[in-house]
Structures are given as structure tokens and as C-alpha cells.
């Protein structure tokens, strides 16, 4: 969904190279105190809106099932977080951690493979001239118009006929096709791998794959991190395809498992608090990593295409 926007950001940033930042203080001179107050209030309101569900999640995770319904939603009850975590880990033979492991397999392992496939393809499209290159570029661009969820049902039908439903491969393999990643790698390859360097390496007797491994990948690395992050997010958030393809709960990723718990909590009330704590545990590491890497992926997002 955000793919077209990335390109928008890129074109805008390209323009920004001309930007002169020395005039920032002129803005400051013109600021009136009244406006500042209005804006600050608006910002606080916005921050409350965006942080509210997260704050509630933090507080609710520390409550027992009973307190969830009897105490005010924004006040702490007795501190049950560790009991809840223990219950989360032991419920149904520790299925929750199995889901965590599955999500990591699909997302971490999957996105590394995806990035490698995209890197090799984008590099070849940028470095070599070969018959059919234009056709492949056209296919890559054209297929970006197909939203992932439209292709989910047909993919499901295909996987069933291949006997790959309810397998790790059934969810991993379709995710490896990431045309937007190929396009990004193509752009990075064009802008950051100088052909002179490759020719020099050839003269030194390095093979094409060695050149790709030791020069291409290294020079494209900042762009590859962007592709890796987006591929990771894509499969971490993916829901419709796993929901269709997997019925074995031992293979489910976190998203599918937690929603299943939420549905079952109508008949098994103790699952309600486990869903809440489970959501918290699934969100915290990803939010921390994401915010910590913010500067990195943000610069990849806006400046990656124009380097070199």
C-alpha cells in the first residue's frame, strides 16, 4: 500500500538537494505566542489519540481477568503482569511461543531470502544488458499494480493444488516474489554501483558472482536494508494468506493465532487477558526495533534512490 508513496517521497527528496537549511531561524522569528499555544494543544490532543490504545494495552496487561472488567481501564489494579506472562507461556502447551517462532521464521528468514532474490535481480537488470531485459522491467513495473490481497485467493487455490497448504514453504515461497523490492534494488544498483569498479574487478580476474557478492551487495547495502525492512514488515503484518493457507495451529504466525484466541475468548474468558498480553509481547520488540532504526530506514526511504 505504501509503495507508491515511497516513490513520491523519493522524487520529492531529489528536489530537496537544492534545499538551503540556513534560513530555518527566519521561521522562528515570526512565531506568535498565541499560535504556539493553539498548536501545542492540538499536538497534545493528537498524541493522546495516537498513544491511547498503546497506553491502555500496557495497563491492561498488568491486570487479572477479573480486574479487566471491574477496574477503570486507565488505572492500575494489582500487578499481575508476570502471572499473565507465565500463563501466556504455558497455555495450550506453550503454543504462543510456537507462534512467535513461526512469525520469526516467516518474517526474518523470509525477508532475508526475499532481499537476496531482489538484490540479484535488480543488480542484473542494472549492470548487464541482455535480451529480454526491457520485458522483465516492464513485468516488474506492471505487477506492482496487483495488490497482494487480490492474489491471495488464487495463490491459495494454487497452493492447495500443489499440496503446499499447511506447510512452511506454502507461506514462504509466495512472499519471495516482491516486484517493488526488485524495482528498488534496480534503482540502487544503477545509482550506487559504478561500472568502472566492476570492470576493474573483471580485469583482476574476479568472476561475475564474486563481483556481485563482494562489490555489488556491499555498495547496495543501505538500499538493501530498506528492502529488508519492508519485506519484513509485509510478512509480519500478513494476515489474509496465512488465514487461508494454514489450518494447523502449529504453523500459524502470531497474527492468526492471536485473532483466533480473541474469537475463542467469547467461550473461554481467560483467553481475553492472554490475547492482551500476547499483543503486548508481540508489539514491544517490533516497535522498539522500528523506532530505533527509524533514522536508518527513513533515510533509505527518502535518499536511497539518489546516492552515488
Amino acid at each position: 500500500m505504501s509503495e507508491a508513496r515511497l516513490i513520491a517521497a523519493k522524487t520529492e527528496k531529489a528536489r530537496g538537494l537544492r534545499r538551503n537549511s540556513s534560513s530555518k531561524m527566519v521561521d522562528g522569528d515570526r512565531v506568535s505566542r498565541g499560535w504556539m499555544l493553539v498548536v501545542t494543544i492540538a499536538m497534545v490532543v493528537a498524541a493522546v489519540y495516537f498513544l491511547f490504545p498503546v497506553v491502555w494495552l500496557l495497563i491492561a496487561s498488568t491486570k487479572s481477568t477479573g480486574e479487566l472488567f471491574t477496574t477503570n481501564g486507565l488505572s492500575f489494579g494489582e500487578f499481575h503482569l508476570f502471572d499473565n506472562l507465565a500463563a501466556l507461556g504455558s497455555y495450550d502447551g506453550g503454543i504462543y511461543w510456537r507462534w512467535v517462532l513461526n512469525s520469526i521464521i516467516y518474517s526474518v528468514f523470509g525477508s532475508i531470502l526475499t532481499t537476496f532474490v531482489c538484490a540479484a535481480t535488480g543488480y542484473a537488470l542494472a549492470i548487464y544488458r541482455f535480451r529480454g531485459r526491457k520485458v522483465i522491467l516492464g513485468l516488474v513495473m506492471g505487477s506492482m499494480l496487483i495488490p497482494g490481497t487480490v492474489i491471495a485467493q488464487p495463490t491459495y487455490v494454487l497452493l492447495v493444488s500443489m499440496g503446499l497448504n499447511n506447510t512452511y514453504a506454502g507461506l514462504l515461497l509466495p512472499a519471495l516474489v516482491y516486484p517493488f523490492g526488485v524495482l528498488l534494488c534496480y534503482i540502487y544498483g544503477q545509482s550506487s554501483v559504478p561500472i568502472e569498479l566492476i570492470e576493474a574487478a573483471r580485469l583482476d580476474g574476479a568472476g561475475e558472482f564474486r563481483i556481485f557478492g563482494s562489490i555489488g551487495l556491499r555498495l547496495m547495502s543501505s538500499g538493501l536494508v530498506t528492502v529488508l525492512l519492508f519485506a519484513f514488515l509485509g510478512s509480519w503484518n500478513s494476515y489474509m494468506l496465512p488465514l487461508l493457507v494454514l489450518t494447523d495451529q502449529n504453523l500459524m504466525p502470531l497474527t492468526v493465532g492471536l485473532v483466533g484466541w480473541n474469537q475463542s475468548s467469547i467461550t473461554i474468558p481467560s483467553l481475553q487477558i492472554l490475547t492482551i498480553v500476547g499483543s503486548l509481547v508481540s508489539v514491544v520488540p517490533i516497535a522498539v526495533v522500528f523506532v530505533a532504526l527509524q533514522r536508518f530506514w527513513r533515510s533509505g526511504l527518502t535518499a536511497g534512490g539518489i546516492r552515488g
Partner: peptide
Amino acid sequence: FFQFAVFLPYAIPGVIAALLWGFL
């Protein structure tokens, strides 16, 4: 801080966001 607040929801998977709001 305010940019962090506005951006934080993006780091939460859409499914989990729906779960949270479902409780709210």
C-alpha cells in the same frame, strides 16, 4: 516526541491494532 507518537501506530501490525481497538 510528537512525531514518535504519531508514527508509533505504524509499527503495530494492522491486525493487532484492530484487536486493541476492538477492546476499546
